[in-house]
């Protein structure tokens, strides 16, 4: 199917001798939000870190099977190029403390030594910050350091930084777990807005968050894919009893 931007095929991954993820088969639809939920330690983060090959930064990382991005195996793609197409936002807001807000947004360009004119950079900064709902709050302080922002603002700055390089896919690794409810609500609103331009894969251990923002939901348990389907189906009529137990809060 044309609309499936990422396909995961018979994929297992882990550390050392230990597979955390076991034989996952899964596809992600273009311009949709797919939530990956499950209790801590079920392999959610490992799974999305494999998609942009961040998992390999661990020296003892192992994997087998394949992940296809636009039909091509990510493991045959240069990770540097791959990560420019698949952006990532982390659990803890991590703007670069040595850079201003402005430089943080264009960090993807600065880090990779891409030089554009001041005007082009200005446009990218404004556009990305608007996309991240942050422009109005910071437009007068663009050259101050990003570390003085609140946690929620910092996280939106990280989203702006990821969006500035025009990725096709945005991986969000529990982006609101360190934020207060108000900041969380704002990020959730932002996620729904962003899917117009990018495909979003959202890892969360917050069941209601998955219900609020996602089109599709994946339920992982102990490294295995338990159920996958439209969010509505999963939350109203789950097929697997394990999913139902998780949703009503029997564990995790």
């Amino acid at each position: 199917m044309e609309s499936e931007i990422i396909k995961i095929r018979d994929f297992s991954a882990g550390y050392g001798q230990n597979f955390v993820l076991k034989n996952i088969n899964l596809s992600f639809e273009k311009n949709k939000v797919t939530a990956i939920m499950g209790p801590s330690g079920c392999g959610k983060s490992t799974l999305i870190r494999c998609i942009n090959r961040m998992h390999e930064l661990n020296l003892d990382a192992i994997h087998k099977g394949d992940i296809l991005f636009n039909g091509k195996s990510v493991f045959e793609t240069n990770p540097i190029l791959l990560r420019k197409k698949i952006g990532m936002v982390f659990q803890r807001p991590n703007p670069f403390p040595t850079m201003s807000i402005y430089d943080n947004v264009i960090a993807g360009y600065r880090l990779n030594g891409i030089k554009l004119s001041k005007k082009e950079f200005d446009l990218i900064v404004e556009d990305s910050l608007k996309k991240a709902f942050l422009w109005e709050e910071v437009k007068d302080n663009l050259h101050k350091k990003g570390t003085f922002l609140s946690g929620g603002q910092q996280q939106r700055l990280c989203i702006a930084r990821a969006m500035a390089v025009n990725p096709d896919v945005l991986l969000l690794d529990e982006p609101t777990s360190a934020l207060d409810p108000k900041a969380t609500a704002m990020i959730e609103e932002l996620i729904v807005e962003l899917k117009k331009t990018v495909t979003i894969i959202l890892v969360t251990h917050n069941r209601t968050q998955a219900a609020r923002v996602s089109d599709f939901t994946v339920f992982l348990y102990l490294g295995e894919l338990i159920e996958y389907g439209s969010t509505e189906t999963i939350f109203t009529t789950p097929k697997n009893p394990k999913t139902e137990e998780y949703l009503i809060g029997k564990f995790g």
């Binding site: 930064l57 540097i80 990560r83 991590n94 670069f96 960090a107 880090l111 990821a162 390089v165």
Partner: peptide
Amino acid sequence: SDLKEAGFALGSTRLEVIKKVIFPY
């Protein structure tokens, strides 16, 4: 390490992360 990861996630090479993230920090 989350700063270094942020650098790698933006498609930087190790040298770029060293020059623009680790060194300034």
